[in-house]
Design a protein around this nucleic acid. Structure first.
Length: 429
RNA sequence: GGGGAGAUACUCAAGCGGCCAACGAGGACAGACUGUAAAUCUGUUGGUGUACACCUUCACAGGUUCGAAUCCUGUUCUCCCCA
């Protein structure tokens, strides 16, 4: 039985807004719908995952999803939600990024299931030979500047307190994106564009163009922007973005990111980022409330999504690593694991080197912290020690500690740690 | 082109010529408490030595002074108003 797309999004809290008639259109026939992705990086981030999941639900509801890679629009930069002009990207980089993102999308969407198969298009294909004069004549003529100025993305940039002004290039962005929709509608029969709620203005420019150029009808649907309870931006940590690419964000960090979701956020996340159905989620939430400390929801969220994005093996490794790093493990446990496991667990952890000779002579703790590059200065190291925040091989140490060969794990590693979460592996050679 | 305001550490933002490594707020980090949370409390937040010390910092370059983030000159940049 096919799911009802709109209903599905609603209970998952993924529906912000849709144009009248959208639901009827979807009920009527197999519909093609698309979402645009920005190829500004060679990997999608967790922020993009909302859109990926939207496409996945769309496909599961019996429709055909299209991912549009914004090769052309990426060169311009979407002004929505930004107060500063974007740096432009060159063509070669865009193509590389696009190829990488495509691979990631393939992990979610089914690209080979007949009429519902997912497809990927690149708007660079139809823009690269579209001349400027042709464009302003055929497209630019259709919309008034007044209409374009009324969009929030533009208004915020030319008025408002922290306005920065905006270049003509960015001003035309909505026309380019609008034309994408027209092009897909005209040539591929695409009836629906979806996106985050910040895209509403750009999407409706598309439906407006379709109406004015060909008198056609098309639909729009947006998902809410994910907000965290503390008001900070979703998908970013102090360390930067959380990416799907394991080379950028290790599966361990990825797992930890979800596991660390706050109680107030996780109820949204589990609806949005997993395919668990309503009953499963209700049951998990009930269990979670009985004992929030066990973090049932966070765990099942993190497991589900880590397996989907990475693999079951990566999940196991991440869990094992978490157990060692955060569980009640001791120096004994560290000594007992194999070298392979050790390296595996600390794969994503920063590393440094010390020479064997100075180690054998006995190394004052401060030097051991600073020399390999774990802490930036002696003062910092001293402070950290006074705070009682430094551990060697999971055991707290004090200022007067001296490191020697007895501290070595497997004969050549030392695990430095500041606080609960900051680890550093020193290799002695 | 004319006039005005400004440039201080991660960010915002105080700073009578000496008591300024520089108030305060936010952020970040750590400790206690916890659930690897939230909230709360506490501490830290230029470098070296740790004791009062010394060194490098308040856009840049000079100058005045026993002494300058603080005064003067020039340079660069930013913002605002008028044309």
């Amino acid at each position: 039985m096919k799911k009802n797309f709109i209903e599905e999004l609603k209970w998952r809290r993924m529906l912000q807004d849709s144009m009248p008639g959208t639901e009827e259109q979807l009920a009527k026939e197999l519909t093609k719908g698309y979402i645009g992705f920005d190829p500004t990086a060679d990997s999608l981030g967790v922020g993009n995952l909302v859109q990926v999941m939207t496409l996945l639900h769309f496909q599961q509801a019996g429709h055909a999803p299209i991912a549009l890679i914004g090769g052309a629009t990426g060169m311009i930069g979407d002004p929505s939600g930004k107060s500063q002009e974007r740096n432009l990207l060159d063509e070669e980089l865009l193509l590389h990024n696009q190829a990488c993102q495509k691979k990631q999308l393939e992990r979610f969407l089914d690209f080979n299931c007949g009429s519902q198969s997912a497809t990927i298009v690149n708007n660079y294909d139809w823009f690269k030979n579209f001349g400027f004069l042709d464009f302003i004549r055929d497209v630019g003529k259709r919309l008034t500047v007044n209409y374009m100025m009324a969009k929030d993305s533009v208004k915020n940039r030319i008025s408002g307190d922290d306005r920065e002004g905006m270049s003509f290039t960015e001003f035309t962005y909505q026309l380019i994106q609008g034309y994408d929709f027209y092009f897909l509608w005209k040539n591929h029969g695409v009836m629906l564009q979806m996106g985050g709620s910040d895209q509403w203005g750009n999407i409706t420019t598309g439906t407006e163009l379709i109406r004015r150029m060909d008198g056609g009808t098309a639909f729009a649907l947006t998902t809410p922007l994910i907000k965290k309870a503390d008001g900070t931006k979703f998908g970013k940590t102090e360390g930067g973005n959380i990416w799907l690419d394991p080379k950028r964000t290790s599966p361990y960090k990825f797992y930890q990111f979800w596991l660390n979701a706050s109680d107030s956020d996780v109820e949204n996340y589990i609806r949005i980022f997993t395919l668990k159905n309503q009953e499963e989620i209700d049951a998990l939430e009930a269990e979670h409330r009985l004992d929030p400390g066990r973090r049932i929801l966070q765990k099942s969220l993190a497991e589900d999504i880590t397996v989907r994005v990475h693999s079951a093996d990566d999940l196991r490794a991440a869990q094992a690593a978490s157990e060692i790093l955060f569980g009640k493990s001791t120096e004994e446990d560290l000594k007992n694991i194999s070298e392979v496991d050790f390296l595996d667990i600390f794969e994503g952890v920063p590393k440094g080197v010390l020479s064997k000779s100075e180690f054998e002579a006995g190394l004052p703790i401060i030097e051991a912290l600073v020399k390999p590059g774990f802490l930036p200065s002696n003062g910092e190291a001293r402070r950290a020690l006074q705070e009682n925040s430094i551990s060697i091989n999971k055991a707290k140490v004090t200022l007067d500690t001296t490191l020697n060969v007895e501290h070595l794990l497997k004969g050549k590693y030392v695990l430095l740690q500041r606080g609960k979460k900051n680890y550093f592996v020193v290799t002695v050679e």
